[in-house]
Nucleic acid binder design. Structure first.
Lengths: 341, 341
DNA sequence: CTGAAAGCGCTTACAG
DNA sequence: CTGAAAGCGCTTACAG
């Protein structure tokens, strides 16, 4: 592999001149630039990123810290990683995957080993152990999630509260007086997933304001169990008239369950949901929904982090991505809850 | 951040001695070792991985080259990444995500920039553009997939041929004389996905041997269309008596479609499938299947790559992971195809 | 058993 | 407009 010294020799200049040609940080005569560029092409030279990183103290690498083994519904994770990798590359950074049973230790290690310039923490909990090492010795980091106390880190996420409000309003506007909130499994709330808690809190608050009686329904953990549970919920005599679904597995299973029971969303039971557009495509989910926009969130996270790296100063940033409702007509029905009343 | 020089000063020894204490590569007196270790603890010293990498010419990083934007069925991708990240970490390596519209260029760049010690290529095609830069200047790489000519790279994958044979045998043993192969969309074969081609070829070969008339059925591209297509296929008068499914979207949609039509797998129509256990769990797929074992494949890939890095010599390795059939009873029926005949 | 020195491949003050 | 030199933080022959 050719080095900058090889190029310098080939072009008959000094290594520093080659470096300056590459960086454009000082004026170079046309003739010298030409010779250097030819030498670079002839030797197929590419800068050694590790050497540059050592010298500049910038790795141009971002670390993404996953909680893979706790993923509530893994298919969604891939979507975030695509978007993060794309955004990082466009900003000139590589992306390193950081996974460990002991995520807090992994964060501390990555920082101390100076492998990355900054961290992206996915799926942040209200009291997330990964935040502890960041509080002890601040390091550029962006949380995806919005814990009550993010500490010195920046944070970005979908505005789950706004999403809940949109969906509650949608139901209330269509005359519903009661609805069932199909929640995640209880352990999701117990673990402190901010997306789940923020949604649930805002949904109840807005429902109270609008006079909508909102009843919690806890889901079980596995997709199979979720399916059986939904069949139970909807198969009885006291079937809910409206479902507000915040649980990807439930949203994925619900079309099947409804069909099994001979029910139609938007007629026999109103269904509105929060899930990603991608998930909707894989699972053919046809409900009125707020789309969780992992692409926009991931892109926002990388933007926040790279601008933090360019200018370390400034108060921690908090950015909420505004959600949008896509009306697929499943928010109405059954007949006794008529629109407009 | 403390450096090895700081530790040396604190312990009253030379930097080289600190390095040797860390590496264990030469004998150190107990007293010196104690002083050094205390200094390390006092200063909270961690080796700077970039500096070590520059000196040793080993980054201890593996690159995983995805074709995310072409993923036929993205949910499966996350599963591979989990397993790769775990296996890499256990072997002492970091994992870097390499994504680009132009995957071949991305591979070339990663190699020339010397950011990684080796590459893992996911979802390899028969004539994969990412192989070109590796042929031109060989670099340690493991393909996940089994193209006809992997070149100098190692390769590992599920034995899709064996999987097809297991499923064909399963149907033949149960007395089926004809079956329909529910394939991926035609573009999957046209693009040259080795998993699809190897499965299809082996299925037809073994079917011919066993006197099973196997008819191809091309699926459309999107999950929604797959669902409609299956409804068409199974709703007509000339409904197939047995389905051999190699298409994750079809496997995911099929339970719903069967239910819509009032058909039962294993009674009205035999169904056997190839898909991952994880997928089965997310989609509640109840068919007799060969499980595609992404965990074992990913682990094998990292093993192959790290042992190649430890000992560069030796012919390219080819490793096929033996698939296992899980009998969920859906391989029998309808009645006219009775077991044992 | 330990240290001084060289060098991995860069970038950037310093000097002209 | 260009070059010589220092140094980023390590590891490892070389020497004793």
């Amino acid at each position: 592999m050719a080095t900058i010294g090889d190029v310098a020799r080939e072009a008959g200049v000094s290594p520093s001149t080659v470096s300056y040609v590459l960086s454009g940080k000082r004026a170079i005569s046309a003739e010298t630039a030409r010779r250097v560029n030819e030498a670079i092409a002839r030797l197929d030279y590419t800068v050694h990123l590790g050497a540059r990183a050592l010298r500049t103290a910038r790795t141009m690498t971002l670390g993404v810290v996953l909680r893979f083994h706790h993923a509530e519904f893994e298919p969604a994770m891939a979507t975030y990683l695509v978007a993060l990798a794309d955004a990082a590359r466009e900003a000139g950074y590589s992306l390193q995957l950081i996974t460990d049973e002991d995520a807090a230790a992994a964060v501390g290690r990555a920082v101390r080993e100076q492998r990355v310039d900054g961290l992206l923490l996915l799926d942040v909990l209200e009291d997330d152990p990964r935040l502890e090492p960041l509080r002890r010795s601040p390091f550029p980091a962006v949380l995806v999630g919005m814990p009550p106390d993010p500490g010195p880190a920046d944070a970005v996420d979908l505005d789950f509260a706004a999403a809940a409000e949109l969906l509650v309003e949608h139901l209330a506007d269509r005359g519903h007086e009661r609805a069932t909130l199909v929640r995640w499994a209880p352990e999701v709330y117990a673990a402190g997933h901010t997306f789940a808690l923020r949604f649930a809190r805002a949904a109840h608050a807005r429902a109270a304001e609008r006079g909508l009686a909102l009843v919690d329904h806890d889901s079980p953990t596995t997709p199979e169990a979720v399916r059986a549970d939904l069949a139970d919920l909807l198969g009885g005599d006291d079937r809910p008239s409206a479902l507000l679904v915040h649980n990807d597995a439930a949203a994925a299973m619900l079309p099947t369950v409804l069909h099994d029971l001979g029910l139609r969303a938007g007629e026999d039971v109103a269904v509105v949901s929060l899930h990603s557009a991608r998930l909707a495509s894989f699972f053919a989910i046809p409900f009125t929904s707020v789309e969780s926009a992992p692409g926009r969130v991931a892109r926002g996270a990388v933007e926040l982090l790279t601008s933090r790296l360019d200018a370390a100063a400034g108060a921690p940033a908090r950015r909420l991505v505004v959600p949008e409702l896509v009306d697929r007509g499943s928010g109405t029905g059954p007949a006794r809850a008529t629109p407009g009343r």
